[in-house]
């Protein structure tokens, strides 16, 4: 474990806490893409298949449980919670995310570290996580004004993988066995997708103005 990876995990956790805060404080999920949340739940469920078979550390197990539980809780809130579900922008959140699932799965069958059940699903979860934010970014552009908590949520979500890139660079120079090309390349693509969001987030912070993405 290195400081970059720990900071990355904490930033990821903060993004989830900010989203939970937004939903519980405002009793609303406006501006949040249910499709992206469903994709994240799928990412965690397919990546942590070794949750009960392999043990790495208490920290690793606890964080996996938190990520799985929180992503499922958010999907439940947006689909079932009588008050929250009413504020879901159903007619704006129309990205066909099944294509993202299919493309990631096909790629995982072609490009993997080892042709084994858990490895294919691990690669699938890595590819899917890289593009899972697309429905959310499209929704932000469509819904114009972005409330503060939603903006912070997306910012921390993008920042966590950028910290993981620093972690991979660090491990590349310190770990002789280290070779995580699948995660590295996907992580670069994932972070690049946030580039324009990061720019408009910075502008809104510098001008102390509302976050606004061009349509």
């Amino acid at each position: 474990m290195n400081i970059f990876r720990f900071a990355g995990d904490m930033t990821h956790l903060i993004s989830i806490l900010v989203l939970l805060l937004k939903i519980y404080a405002t009793k609303s999920c406006s501006g949040i893409s249910l499709k992206t949340q469903e994709l994240y739940a799928l990412v965690f469920l397919t990546r942590y298949l070794d949750l009960f078979t392999g043990f790495i550390s208490i920290y690793n197990t606890v964080m996996k449980l938190i990520f799985i539980a929180s992503s499922l809780a958010i999907v439940w809130c947006m689909r079932v919670h009588p008050i929250v579900r009413r504020s879901y922008d159903k007619d704006l959140d129309t990205f066909r995310h099944y294509f993202l699932v299919a493309a990631s799965f096909i790629l995982a069958l072609l490009l993997y570290e080892k042709f084994a059940f858990k490895e294919i699903f691990w690669a699938f979860s890595i590819y899917l996580e890289a593009i899972a934010i697309l429905p959310q970014l499209v929704l932000l552009q469509r819904s114009g004004n972005v409330d503060n908590l939603t903006g912070h949520y997306v910012f921390f979500l993008g920042a966590y993988r950028a910290l993981y890139i620093l972690n991979w660079i660090y491990r590349y120079f310190t770990d002789i066995h280290f070779s995580r090309w699948i995660a590295c390349v996907s992580g670069l693509v994932q972070t690049a997708l946030y580039a324009d969001f990061f720019y408009y987030y910075y502008i809104s912070w510098r001008n102390n103005a509302k976050l606004k993405l061009p349509a």
């Binding site: 990876r5 995990d9 990821h12 990546r47 392999g54 790495i56 690793n60 691990w122 066995h177």
Partner: peptide
């Protein structure tokens, strides 16, 4: 064989 490279990252 080298220790199975487990995915130790989240």
């Amino acid at each position: 064989s080298p220790k199975q490279e487990r995915h130790d990252e989240l």
